[in-house]
Design a protein around this nucleic acid. Structure first.
Lengths: 354, 354
DNA sequence: GCTAATCTCTGTATCGATTCAGACTGGATC
DNA sequence: GATCCAGTCTGAATCGATACAGAGATTAGC
């Protein structure tokens, strides 16, 4: 059994308080006594104050949680998420705070418990799916949090960092529309929960539950509405999961249809790269010329020559953590909108004449 | 002030124990009473048992620490580290355990404190630099840990997962030696601590403090010793930090020297890619033909056509976490050696005749 | 009908520290 | 010589739960 602080106190013949002070408040006792205590502690093999006990008494933990509403391993697979984490990590480092990555079980009840049991002082919520229940739990616990997806019902004092998803998506779509494309497919991850991969008919974009996805699809639709292409004329394709293979599989059949799309607007670079994969997989003589756009501008996008919308990934993570760890006095400053930019590369071009 | 478990007990008129049981041991009380308690808790806004208090009493935390003996942001920059983390994450997920990423301040005293204060049940130590002090602290705390770098002084019961660095490196070097290269540069991250970038003279490879680096350099040296090229004839190049730009900067001057190396063996893919960057940065007419090898086989390596040594990254992370969370009864099983494979791609070729 | 087993629930001890009001000592101040 | 003060150290209260032995009430077994 490891000795406790009490054991050290007994060994030196001082009170528990004094030993505690030797560790946490050196100015509260004479240097000589402090040395004596530290020596005794070394001799006894006292590992220093127990972090958990300390947290309990102090009322804070010294670590922030990062919540991915999906598999934890996903967080490391998605290049955008990784860069986001890097940003959070940089801020955490600056504040001497640890990051707790909490895996969420599939079952909602278990997932709620996971959030309830996380020993953290606050959460950065990186949203990849519907997260409302998670925010409920966090609020219930009375913990501060920063969200990265704009929600309609967000109260004014909720901290947020993100982009104008709709405007950003619109810029990409306007570029494609400007190139003359009118037969267009929109590709998104988990348009509706538990829906199979492939084309999907939806009365309107407002049916999409996930705010980020809804925002991007709205932006795409906006740009095409402007050139006279209505929502019903756009092909919406669902991908279950944000991965290249999933996107490739979901889109594959589309190009063999009577009037295939001449452009595919994807909700993320990962999906867009999957589309490029699907195209590359076809024999050269049967490979349609399709314009493809992504979203995020992950490192791989540049290498693949993908036209995409850039958003500052690390910055997003860094600011999310900063907002959490060092909340601005002004509530308005707690709502940060980051800039985006359309990055045009080789993956988009004019409609081929055929 | 959030209500405590006691408050709920009072509201319902039962003992604290019973409320506790309602949460943690539903089988210890009648279903009806349990419902009554949970209802009251909801009404009062009780956030559920305080995770810290619970951890203190239970004696464990439910999370494992991942220790990077370097900047935390590095962990997300190095593709190999990211894949390692993904593996740890997958295992953590399986066990319902969280991962705590602990940033380490530069100053050793502060860094020690960070490890002392981490609320975790054990550590996966991903080594990027000398870690001996960290292991000391962990041992002192009496926490279990798994290391990924083989150390000479490791006691038999210490858990470990890694590769035979020396043999793996040797395979790469043997390939290059077989192609006829004799003027060769070895590139490694932080050969000696706090040493400037660039060529470095070292009496022998045993002077390198970091076991992983030492292992790989030894392997390189082994292969060349076999074809009659001694340690002194090899050019050792130090890179401060495992990054492409750093590697490019460190190697840049080398090709303008009288008898430039015809091959560069790098201690990691990231460094090797940096070498390729440095070469690509030169004007075409002044670009020497240099064989380059890496180590790890990160995703980018394939795209760049880099010859490298593959080691299973996620597997390493997964097994590290498994060894920690589910220790094998047999001590020998706690020491896992993963397979490696030489992957020959376009970045290596015969010595050009000039 | 009596003992044993089962089900619920309670009370007390405990996890390992931090906090804060105050006791004590030995100068400095006037 | 009384007062004040700064510097040290102590003790009791507290953070918010869980563990475990055991008290009562029921049910089961024979």
């Amino acid at each position: 059994m490891k000795p406790t602080l009490q054991a050290v106190a007994d060994a030196v013949g001082v009170s528990r308080s004094t030993v505690s002070n030797a560790y946490s408040r050196p100015d509260q006792l004479s240097a000589t006594l402090r040395e004596r205590i530290l020596d005794a502690a070394r001799q006894l093999g006292y590992p220093g104050p127990n972090p958990t006990a300390r947290s309990l008494r102090r009322g804070f933990v010294g670590s922030i949680g990062v919540l991915f509403t999906s598999q934890l391993s996903y967080a490391f697979t998605d290049p955008f998420a990784v860069r986001f984490l890097a940003g959070v990590g940089a801020a955490a480092e600056r504040h001497g705070t640890s990051m707790l990555l909490v895996p969420l079980p599939r079952a909602v009840t278990d997932a709620r418990q996971a959030v309830e049991n996380a020993a953290v002082d606050g959460f950065c919520v990186y949203c990849v799916a519907d997260e409302e229940w998670a925010l409920d739990v966090i609020r219930q616990r009375g913990l501060p949090f920063v969200s990265t997806a704009a929600r309609d019902d967000a109260s004014a004092d909720e901290r947020f960092v993100g982009i104008d998803e709709r405007a950003a998506a619109r810029s990409a779509a306007a570029h494609v529309a400007g190139l003359g494309h009118r037969r267009v497919a929109l590709l998104a991850d988990s348009v509706l929960p538990d829906t199979p991969a492939g084309p999907l008919t939806l009365a309107g974009v407002d049916q999409v539950p996930h705010p980020t996805t809804r925002g991007r699809l709205s932006g795409f639709a906006d740009a095409f509405a402007e050139v006279g292409v209505g929502w019903a004329e756009l092909t919406l394709v669902n991908v279950p999961g944000n991965s290249r293979p999933a996107a490739a599989a979901a889109i594959a059949g589309l190009f063999d249809q009577p009037a295939p799309p001449t452009a595919v607007l994807a909700g993320s670079d990962v999906l867009a790269l999957g589309v490029l994969d699907a195209l590359a997989a076809r024999p050269a003589h049967d490979r349609p010329t399709v314009s493809v756009t992504g979203f995020d501008d992950v490192p791989e996008a540049a290498a693949a020559g993908l036209t995409t919308v850039r958003q500052p990934a690390e910055e997003k993570g860094r600011i999310a953590a900063e907002l959490l760890l060092d909340p601005p006095a002004d509530a308005a400053a707690g709502h940060v909108l980051l800039p985006t930019a359309l990055v045009v590369r080789g993956s988009t071009g004019p409609v081929p004449r055929s």
